[in-house]
Design a protein around this nucleic acid. Structure first.
Lengths: 380, 380
DNA sequence: CATAATTAGTTTTAGCCTTGAACTAATTAT
DNA sequence: ATAATTAGTTCAAGGCTAAAACTAATTATG
């Protein structure tokens, strides 16, 4: 209700966006689009045929519905080759880049190790490398429909500025969005990396219905909150900071200012230090006592933070992405059990904890998603 | 993006609702409405004049803008006497009811002590008492535009059912919305009590911009999350359960299943038991050592939970409502200080902690708000 | 195998909504 | 007193969607 009123000119666009948004998840016939949007069949015909002429949509050809009479449907699909976007993930020690077509297909990706580079140097690196790579892979910059940038920690997405991230000095307070917009002449959107991963999971792995929390575990612990596929961004687009939930107010001091933050306990490196284990495999090994202790510790600490999140957010799904590749199922099952027995809400609505369907190293791909979203509906 | 597409018939209604929604907060002229909605002046004229004819809007008469040339504005306002709604707050030991006109003015309210009553008896009591009171106060049931019901704890707002609340057996799993709809023949909406209070604060005390958490402290501790005035309801409309955030995983068992829940520490009765203090006055008294200890304890426990909420939600305001009437400013100031020094986000965006502007005992009034919202925009 | 039934998609006409421009109305600036 | 400014209205024009009647393509049925 807070947005501007719709004038009649925006109405058409609005309905076009709605149709596109439906087709992003699965090919549908005109009849099905009509049913799902509530628009009249005739309106769908008009809008769809316009978009086919413009090249955004494709007809996939006839497709039979099993065991029904009547004319065969003609499935519609987004035309992937209409254009593409670039995703750039900024990381403490590397920058990774991916090209993704508007259907969500990754065209290529690569990683640049950066080491101790300055902001200006990093920007120059991006400016030089991207056009070269585009030329090599025969992608025309004219078809570049947008650019998504993701980074850890607090950002100001509206202003397009990365804000003093802990353990991350690159691009500190630098107006990266403005700089890239100027260079590449396309829309540029900045988003938290956990947010982009959550959106990627929702759009291209499994549509998230209801309220879900996407948790990333690597150097730090990040999180992003989704409600029916929309990000809940909080006041400054930095909601979901699970890593700095205090699970022990008398615990060690954390660089963030708080004490006993989850991030100090439940990352792989923290567990390695505390329990002297070798790797994530040892966590779920039957033979290692140290591994078992570390596993229990992980479940208790992470579980405590998640119970808080479940109670506050009324979650029904928690998605885990990151370091604990090995036997993720065992970890998610244990966390689910922990939450079930420690949350009020769960007595009524059980929470599912599942591993992310995204493969590791999807950050650059994920960074591209907000740019695709922006293309499809002018909003991240 | 998830809703249905707009057909042209809904467009008009949509714009009417937008205009009404603007006028709920302050009287505006047609020109200002045009500016704020983006609708053409001529469209505003048409829509507004229609609504004046229908009796929903009123012209307040000419009003000068200070120091500008031109014709005087004619301020528009919601017509309070167009109709009213009833709010019913269900509490462990009482039911309170309020009549509120659609401008948000409380017409009357009263409280029924219920004691150990059964669900059926309580329902009968409501069915009998309300029409009697309406007749007494000369309110015509024809002008009853809606009915809002609020209750503590987990609910299923969509289905209109109160779900096994802890410490609250009344209406347990009872389809209250259906029953009342049948009896009174108007829309009935069910909402969590903290949610209704948050909406009341937003609509009739101070418009909440950004992300805010409304915290209620009484027998238990509840919470509701607002983003630009819209409730973030979570998966089942029960987000914000601050009271069962664990602040000590090794603490006492809570009836909810978790351990060391905030609710076990930071309510007035918990503090009374733990520190042997007399009342909330003692908390902020200069002379009481016990009071000081209790105060510090309150700030630390509540602060810990709030830091978690701030980090997860990226809050910029926390609003406190409830038991700590005495010297609330001192408590909010201390909490603000605690959060400032314990949250990552706050280093970038300071969080404000403020006492609610609602007077105590606003539950029934607040319960009516979702019904008003429903009247204005068909959504809670 | 022909006809009916069913489902998909298109064409065309009509109606509704918003708009923009030109207007009236009411006030201040000079 | 006249110009400038802001508020609000009227009305013709244009754009979007809807509904109905249509064509198209397939399965069910005897």
């Amino acid at each position: 209700m807070a947005e501007k009123a719709l004038n009649i000119l925006e109405l058409k666009n609005n309905n076009r966006y709605r149709i596109l948004d439906l087709l992003r998840y699965e090919p549908l016939s005109r009849a099905e689009v009509s049913l799902k949007t509530g628009l009249a069949k005739s309106s769908v015909t008009t809008l769809v045929n316009e978009m086919i002429n413009e090249g955004i949509l494709l007809e996939l050809g006839p497709a039979r519905k099993n065991g029904t009479a009547g004319r065969t449907r003609i499935l519609l699909d987004i035309n992937g080759s209409y254009g593409f976007v670039l995703g750039i993930n900024l990381h403490r020690k590397r920058i990774s880049v991916a090209a993704v077509d508007i259907k969500g297909k990754e065209l290529w990706s690569f990683t640049l190790p950066t080491g101790d580079i300055t902001t200006i140097e990093a920007l120059e690196l991006i400016k030089k490398t991207l056009p070269k790579k585009l030329a090599e892979t025969k992608l025309n910059i004219k078809n570049l429909l947008g650019l998504g940038v993701s980074a850890p920690g607090p950002l100001d997405c509206e202003k397009g500025v990365i804000l003093e991230p802990p353990n991350f000095k690159l691009f500190n307070n630098f107006p990266i969005v403005e700089a890239l917009k100027k260079e590449f002449g396309c829309p540029v959107v900045l988003e938290n990396d956990a947010v982009t991963l959550a959106l990627a999971e929702h759009s291209y792995v499994k549509k998230q219905i209801g309220s879900s929390l996407f948790v990333t575990v690597s150097n730090g612990i990040g999180g992003a909150l989704l409600k029916n596929g929309d990000i809940y961004g909080g006041s400054h687009g930095i909601a979901g900071e699970l890593g700095h939930i205090s699970i022990d107010p008398f615990g060690e001091e954390c660089p963030c200012g708080n004490r006993g933050c989850l991030e100090q306990y439940a990352t792989l490196s923290a567990l390695k230090n505390r329990f002297d284990i070798a790797d994530s495999v040892e966590l779920t090994s039957e033979n290692s006592q140290k591994g078992k202790a570390a596993f229990d510790f992980l479940i208790n600490t992470m579980g405590t933070a998640l119970v808080g999140a479940v109670n506050l957010f009324d979650l029904d799904t928690v998605i885990l992405y990151g370091e604990f590749d090995n036997d993720t199922e065992k970890i998610t099952a244990a966390l689910e059990e922990y939450i079930k027995s420690h949350s009020v809400i769960c007595r009524v609505h059980p929470v599912k904890v599942v591993p992310s369907g995204l493969k590791r190293g999807s950050s650059a791909f994920a960074a591209a998603i907000p740019a695709i979203n922006y293309f499809f509906n002018n909003s991240v």
